[in-house]
């Protein structure tokens, strides 16, 4: 200790401490820096590559209508063919592509839901018995998910926009069903019908059914958030996140609910009921009447 105390008093001590500190920092920096540097570089490279993949997918599948810079296109008369995608956000891309509506087959009043193209088919069947077949399918599915994510990232990079909702925000078991039913009847039923069996709109457009095979909770959320096609946008000030979750809870729990009264007859109200009444009710009774009148007594007792 005495020696250190002595050295502290030397004129060069200050410089020595500064040097030592610099050296230590240098050593510590050298110890960590190369690694982070490499990781960051790798990340950036990967992101760039993903973005590149997203752009390639965009150019291949979307640019022909939406334009190379996603600025939208118009026909010769100035009528829009496809809208601009600047600022539509990841949620919109995810909804349109994962439901197969985009890339569109042909322009019409409304893009129908269909099986997504193989490059984006995230619902791919993977439950094959043969391991190699399953592995191939799983790989393809993973690629599709990555493709979709890349495309989302690319479109977001052009102008931002709403993000894909988290799994927790769309969990149908967490919403308030009673509130959801009320909100659904006030905001959704006029087009989608009281339990979401779908309905017709003007000009050949329609509100699609909300059955299990039609739409996932995430897609319902994205549709409310982005207002695809004829649907209005229900942003977070119109319907808060809890409201959206409540609506999802109502739709999902109602469509999973069995019909206590027998066959649901499509859950489309009195039209199918009248049809059943005439065809089955009157039909069966006419058969019974024919049968009864065809029965002749063998002989009438004289009395």
């Amino acid at each position: 200790m005495k020696r250190i105390t002595a050295w502290r008093r030397r004129p060069w001590a200050g410089y020595a401490v500064v040097l030592a500190a610099l050296a230590a920092i240098g050593v510590i920096y050298a110890g960590f820096s190369p690694q982070t540097d490499r990781a960051e570089a790798e990340n950036t490279a990967q992101a760039a590559q993903d973005l590149k993949n997203g752009q390639e997918l965009f150019n291949k599948n979307c640019a022909s209508c939406h334009g190379l810079n996603a600025e939208g296109t118009k026909d010769a008369k100035g009528k829009p063919i496809a809208p601009s995608l600047l600022g539509v956000g990841a949620a919109s891309v995810d909804f349109q592509v994962s439901t197969g509506r985009m890339p569109a087959m042909n322009p019409g009043a409304q893009m129908p839901r269909k099986k997504p193209i193989p490059a984006f088919d995230t619902e791919l069947k993977t439950d094959y018995a043969e391991p190699e077949k399953r592995e191939a399918a799983e790989k393809q599915k993973a690629q599709a998910e990555k493709n979709l994510a890349d495309l989302r990232a690319f479109v977001t990079s052009l102008g931002g926009g709403p993000e894909v909702p988290s799994a927790a925000a769309t969990d149908p078991s967490k919403g308030d069903v009673a509130v959801g039913g009320k909100l659904f009847r006030t905001n959704c039923a006029q087009c989608h019908s009281f339990v979401g069996s779908g309905g017709a709109l003007t000009g050949g457009k329609y509100a699609p059914p909300l059955d299990k095979s039609d739409v996932t909770p995430t897609q319902i959320y994205e549709a409310m958030l982005t207002g695809p096609q004829a649907m209005p946008v229900f942003n977070d000030t119109t319907l808060t996140q809890q409201d959206k979750q409540a609506i999802i809870a109502y739709v999902v729990q109602t469509r999973e609910e069995p019909n206590p009264g027998g066959n649901g007859l499509g859950r489309i109200g009195p039209v199918s009921e009248g049809l059943v009444g005439w065809l089955i009710g009157i039909g069966l009774l006419v058969l019974a009447a024919t049968w009864i009148t065809a029965k002749k007594p063998k002989k009438l007792k004289k009395s």
Partner: peptide, 20 residues
Amino acid sequence: AQINPIWLFGPYDPGAISSA
């Protein structure tokens, strides 16, 4: 055959309407 499932229609509310 289920007929008139009023629990699916919900209670009447003059502000709400359903297609079909």
